[in-house]
Simulated scan of single mutants.
Amino acid sequence: MASENDYINYEMQKRTEPLLGVVIHNDASELNANEWREVLINAPEERYVQGIAHYYIDRNGQWQAIDTENIAWHTANQIGNEQYLGYEVLESLSSTDEEFLLNEQETFRVIASDMIDYNLEPNRDTVKLHLEFSETECPHRSFEIHTNWKTTVDGIPDEWVINDLKDYFISQIKQYMLN
């Protein structure tokens, strides 16, 4: 699927506060970008309130659900929603590790482009994880693969584990910013 900019059929509020960074999510589903588009593009507001990110990304493509100038409801937290862009790494429940890693890489590429556009430097303040804003296991699959922390068994990770994953994400995003 090529990048789509046919946003959801609902007008999200424009961001009035400065953009502070990005939040990386794992979607906790088996859906790819095309399937998420079908589920969300004409969904009712009640569905969006449950959570919706700016981007849905897999190794075969991406769907941008919301313009980056608008707020998304992706962190269950006012600052996270209003001042951070949300990126869903897809197929966290259905892909092999190799496929999921490719989905992550595509996500890092998109994030790098947006960080360049918004003049943001990848660091621990600008690159956040969903669980830093609300009580969740997200990004569960990324934790498992990169830190061997299983949020379903081990619970919310310690700060050093969170920073370990963030440092990996930051290094990957920086690589795409250099190219």
Results as ranks from 00 to 15, higher is better:
M1A: 07
M1D: 01
A2W: 00
A2Y: 00
S3E: 10
N5D: 01
D6W: 01
I8F: 07
N9I: 05
Y10V: 09
M12Y: 10
M12F: 15
M12A: 06
K14H: 07
R15F: 04
T16I: 11
E17I: 07
L20Q: 13
G21I: 15
S29G: 12
E30Q: 00
E30T: 05
L31S: 04
L31M: 04
N32Y: 00
R37W: 06
R37M: 09
V39R: 04
I41G: 01
I41H: 07
A43C: 09
P44V: 13
Y48V: 12
Q50Y: 14
I52M: 11
A53K: 03
H54D: 14
Y55P: 05
Y56C: 05
Y56F: 14
Y56N: 03
Y56P: 03
D58A: 05
D58Q: 08
G61F: 03
W63T: 02
I66L: 06
D67Y: 02
E69F: 01
N70K: 08
I71M: 08
A72F: 11
H74I: 08
H74C: 08
H74Q: 12
H74G: 03
A76L: 13
A76F: 13
A76G: 13
N77C: 14
Q78D: 15
I79G: 13
E82T: 13
E82A: 13
Y84L: 09
G86A: 11
G86Y: 09
V89Q: 01
L90W: 01
L90M: 13
L90K: 02
E91L: 10
L93C: 05
S95M: 01
S95V: 01
T96A: 01
D97A: 00
L101H: 00
L102A: 15
E104Y: 04
T107M: 13
T107E: 10
T107L: 10
I111A: 15
A112K: 06
A112E: 10
A112N: 12
D114M: 07
D114H: 11
I116Y: 10
I116Q: 13
D117R: 07
L120I: 15
L120R: 02
R124K: 15
D125K: 06
D125Q: 14
V127S: 07
K128A: 11
K128T: 11
L129A: 07
H130A: 12
S134T: 13
T136H: 09
T136F: 11
C138N: 14
C138Q: 13
P139V: 09
R141K: 04
S142L: 14
I145G: 02
I145N: 02
H146V: 05
H146W: 10
H146P: 04
N148R: 02
K150P: 05
K150C: 13
T151R: 08
T151I: 13
T151Y: 02
T152V: 14
V153L: 15
V153P: 04
G155I: 14
G155K: 08
G155H: 11
D158E: 14
E159K: 12
I162G: 08
N163G: 12
L165D: 06
D167M: 05
D167T: 12
Y168A: 00
Y168N: 08
I170D: 10
I173W: 04
I173V: 15
I173M: 03
Q175R: 09
Q175H: 07
L178E: 15
N179S: 09
